[in-house]
Simulated assay, not measured.
Amino acid sequence: MIRAAIVGAGGIAGICHVPALRAEAHRAEIVAAVDIDAARVKDFCAEHGIPAAYTDLEAMLAEARPDLVHVCTPPHLHAAQVAACLRAGAWVLCEKPPCLSLAEYDAMAAAERDGGPYAAVVYQHRFGSGARHLRHLIAEGELGRPLVAVCLTTWYRDHAYFDVPWRGRWDTEGGGPTMGHGIHQMDLLLATLGDWAEVRAMAGRLDRDVDTEDVSLASVRFENGALASIVNSVLSPREESRLRFDLTEATVELSHLYGYENADWTYTPAPHVTDEARIATWRTPEADVPSSHTALLADLLDAYERGERPETSGAGGRQTLELIAALYKSALTGRPVRRGEIDDTDPFYREMNGGMDL
């Protein structure tokens, strides 16, 4: 059995991570949980039947000796906690955003070892059957060449949401909705279209009392020539997560909020595509696997058992974070940013806002 531990006994741990681990109970068991609040972690363990409660991460790593640690703490704690787990020989599944900067991400990756342990990021939308099916169709050339994409994370978070001390601050959350909310949809955009080449962006603080942005807009050129428009917002009363891909053979659309099923995807053939049997294959993935922590964890445990790098670790986890850093740099400097230009000499490498005020 794979011995799993959870660090951070807040909402996301109980809502998403515990059910994902229970779904893999045939090969994984939860042996411990950690939280700085002793009463909270004790209650969490009692509620979920977890045998050992800790208030110190290092003590848990030494005594419980987990094979896999789920890091569910606020973003500013991730880098140090992930590195500690890796040094102890434990694989990691880290909530988004994985850290506060590219510098922190690279430091975490440096603690990995060939064959494991590895640190994977919670980018669960890649793993639903609808997304896997679309990626397969595009890879096979079945839908033609990608041309245009739209990526919307238009959510609503009221003023009280930002009363939590670490939210809406560059030094503890790393950014606003671009970093903490839209990261999921942008990751699925990149997983579908591949490497991005150039970003031109704007960001604003329009209504919420935060240090970061509460809305951002970006235009992105991909290496394959496709162009995409991105909106990230926490000011939108009608909430929606939406992706649209226009290819030479079809338009593919996904509309949901926090997770999708196959029924949330629609395929509209181009006027010249009239073969109904062909079109039917687009709309019918072999299985219906919702995007979820459960689907992601299954893939991660498969990688663990093979001793292989998980899809959302290493370069696979960094790609989206680099796009976000470039979006912020473009928005704050007023100029386009190309992939790869944010190196370790760039202020945006160490801070998502490059030390600048919005």
Rank of each mutant, 00 (worst) to 15 (best):
E351K: 00
E95W: 13
P75A: 13
L327S: 10
A331Y: 00
H256N: 14
V252G: 04
R65E: 08
N353P: 02
D43A: 14
D163I: 03
L296P: 02
D357A: 03
A277F: 13
H78R: 07
T55A: 07
W282D: 05
L296T: 14
H184G: 01
G130L: 03
H133Q: 07
E142R: 15
A226V: 03
W196P: 04
E351Q: 08
G14I: 05
R27W: 08
V122R: 00
T312P: 02
L137H: 01
D344S: 08
T55M: 05
G225W: 02
V234N: 00
R135M: 10
Y258E: 15
P165S: 06
D214I: 06
E223I: 15
G180L: 02
L57W: 02
D37C: 14
L254F: 03
G10I: 07
V18A: 04
H17G: 07
V41A: 05
D37Q: 15
W155S: 11
A226Y: 00
A228D: 03
A90C: 15
E261P: 02
M1L: 09
G168A: 12
R242G: 03
V215C: 06
I12T: 10
I342D: 00
G128Y: 03
D67W: 03
M1Y: 07
G314M: 05
H256S: 15
A298T: 14
G89Q: 04
T312R: 02
R278F: 08
S292H: 05
D214N: 10
P98T: 08
P310R: 02
T320E: 04
G317N: 01
T154D: 12
A295W: 02
A5C: 12
D207M: 09
R283M: 05
L152Q: 11
T172S: 08
A160F: 14
G115I: 15
D211R: 04
A39V: 11
Y267C: 02
V164A: 14
A33M: 09
T281K: 08
E213Q: 05
P165K: 07
R132V: 13
T268S: 12
R3E: 15
A80I: 06
D343L: 04
V121T: 07
L188R: 01
G176D: 06
A25V: 04
D357S: 11
P19H: 06
R157V: 03
D114M: 10
L86T: 05
A191H: 04
A287Y: 08
G194M: 11
T178I: 06
S255M: 10
D114L: 13
G89M: 06
F44M: 11
E240I: 15
E239F: 12
G10A: 14
L93A: 11
A83K: 02
V164K: 09
R208M: 01
G116M: 14
E240Y: 09
D56Q: 13
